[in-house]
Write a protein that binds this DNA or RNA. Structure first.
Lengths: 277, 277
DNA sequence: CATGGGCAATACCCTGGAGGTATGGAGACA
DNA sequence: TGTCTCCATACCTCCAGGGTATTGCCCATG
């Protein structure tokens, strides 16, 4: 099976219409029909039900749609990773969201620089959704992810640090003076608790603004504390879900530079915090 | 990048010789050379060092070799899974080694049969090395694996049961009467302890024969006990590494039949043992 | 029931590129 | 320096993948 055929198939599977799929692929409909027929003949299995008006995926077709997407992702990642490995200056691309390193990054970078296998480190600061994607598609080598907020499917990983939860409230807030709170207290408050009820806010600045205005109370890993606006304060949440900061990289990857980075990061995390993972 | 090109590249990367690679691929050397050149041009990156006598992989080439293997495995798996999904009678193929189900399989099968999404279950009994491979390459849907003896890389999994370790010794052995032993005692014994020092024995019959002859002491999960030869006995190892029996299936897979099987197995395991995972 | 429209399949042609053969050319080693 | 090895280049062939024109089938609609 050639990747071209898989791309053709996936286009038809998504459009469920040979004509539109062909247009999307920049080709005519008949060769596309033939390519799919050929694929079906080779696999010995029908992929589409063509019963009159419109087509639909057979169960085999549904399986192949999934698999084809996997393969095409892997091919795209292979291209990106190979290209990057071929650049003259070897670099390690690290993806993280601002403040998403649990405060460990400066020490990790300093310790890593001393390592014999170390290469230049490039930091990519990005939003929450892109981070894992950047590693999956080969743009980045490794990312700081937060469990349980992000999926580790398809990654190898190394836990670095476990963080407790804090509630973020305006400086003058009723809870601001307390030594700690519990989740139940926060939920009892008339102010909505993020991310329990407002999972659709993805921009931290917006979120913090809403907190400052008293429209929300936010819960976050304790490492956000140093980066917080001055008009907000943190209160530890005793029974909040702990967050684990992990380094995640693609399975089967084992460049010396990456291995050194992971080992350094792990050592730094262990040195800086009593109980890592 | 077409899969054909990746296969070509991988052949050359493995042989490190265009002539031999071409022979292996059943083609002439010049078109192979050209195909690789084209690939290098498209990627914008040299994949081989061609400095006189012999060739070698560049660092980009090493990356692509890994990635190409991943892609080709994914393509092979896609073919196998699609073909199997297209067969008239839907089946769930379960791979396990004899006795590798932790004694759970009969109950799981019985419970599964009652499930609305259940399909015919086909059991593939196989050796330890093939089990994960069968799932990876799409021949099987799901396998019973043993942690930490087997890698879960690339799989989703569900832990079913945690088992203690037992030492296997001949019936008349010095340790046979004891209520339990510790690893240190076993290591102190002049008889070599498997798998610590004899990891190269893969055939259980051979292994058991060696144990019966007093040439080895074997450590294994406790669920081997019912299948043991009558001339051997088990002694619990108090501080032996516990084994977790898990169900493992390919990431991103979610057929109804498989989901039903996993959920059933998990429920059965929870019912039969106090503390699963 | 007849007709028209939408859409995939078929028929037929054409071109680019994959593959083959012959040969060149650059190191390595005697 | 000559020769051997092995990859690259030159040149040719042919087929597979792509295009255009058309048919065939199903369904909707009057």
């Amino acid at each position: 099976m050639e990747t071209r055929e898989l791309a053709y198939f996936l286009a038809v599977a998504e459009e469920l219409h040979f004509g539109r799929a062909a247009e999307r692929l920049g080709m005519a409909q008949p060769p596309l029909s033939r390519a799919i027929q050929k694929l079906e003949r080779r696999l010995g299995v029908p992929l589409f039900d063509r019963s009159g008006r419109g087509i639909s995926l057979t169960s085999a077709g549904e399986v192949l749609a999934r698999e084809a997407a996997t393969v095409l992702d892997a091919v795209a990642a292979a291209t990106a990773r190979t290209r990057r490995a071929g650049r003259a200056d070897p670099r390690l691309v690290v993806a993280l969201k601002p403040g998403g390193d649990g405060g460990l990054l400066p020490d990790i970078l300093e310790a890593y620089r001393a390592h014999p296998d170390a290469v230049e480190v490039e930091l990519v600061l990005c939003g929450v959704a892109q981070r894992a994607q950047l590693v999956r598609d080969g743009t980045a080598d490794v990312a700081f992810l937060h469990i349980p907020y992000e999926e580790l499917t398809g990654f190898d990983s190394e836990p670095l640090r476990v963080e407790g939860s804090v509630a973020i409230v305006p400086r003058g807030h009723r809870l601001a003076g307390q030594a700690f709170v519990r989740v139940a207290e926060l939920e009892a408050d008339p102010t909505p608790l993020w991310p329990r009820r407002h999972a659709d806010i993805n921009d931290p600045a917006t979120l913090m603004q809403l907190v400052a205005l008293g429209r929300l109370i936010a819960m976050a890993p304790e490492s956000v504390t140093p980066h917080l606006r001055r008009d907000l304060v943190c209160v530890p949440v005793l029974d909040g879900t702990p967050t684990t900061v992990v380094l995640a990289w693609p399975e089967r990857t084992r460049s010396r530079a990456l291995a050194a980075f992971v080992r350094t990061a792990s050592a730094v995390a262990e040195r800086l915090s009593p109980a890592p993972g």
